[in-house]
Amino acid sequence: MPKVTFVSADGRETTLTAQNGQSVMQVAMVNGVEGIVAECGGSAMCATCHVYVDTPFVHLAAPASEIENEMLDCVASQRRPGSRLSCQIQMSDALDGLRVFLPETQQ
């Protein structure tokens, strides 16, 4: 089962095991990782599950949809090249070892 590491804004790392098909947001929620709010529960409608995907993994995740791309323009912390909505990234073996950085704020 693939692993994912969350790095908080102040540098604390949490590594968790995900199920294939589980969203990165859901991995954070179930395990109580702070720094992801996920108000809309994964519909790409709230932009409060924003993460910065570590560069080596950016091209491994399926690209953002048009709606996600538009929501990313509206995130509370700055949008950067690795910015994604974590609810839209599904874990898979290809993403094993994924590292995502959490932004300063989600709201």
């Binding site: 199920q19 589980q22 969203s23 859901q26 929620m29 179930v30 395990n31 109580g32 529960g41 994964g42």
Partner: peptide, 14 residues
């Protein structure tokens, strides 16, 4: 699994 808000372990920890 995609719906649950916190797992048992996270609730215990809190």
């Amino acid at each position: 699994d995609q719906l649950v808000l916190r797992g048992q372990a996270a609730l215990d920890a809190q």
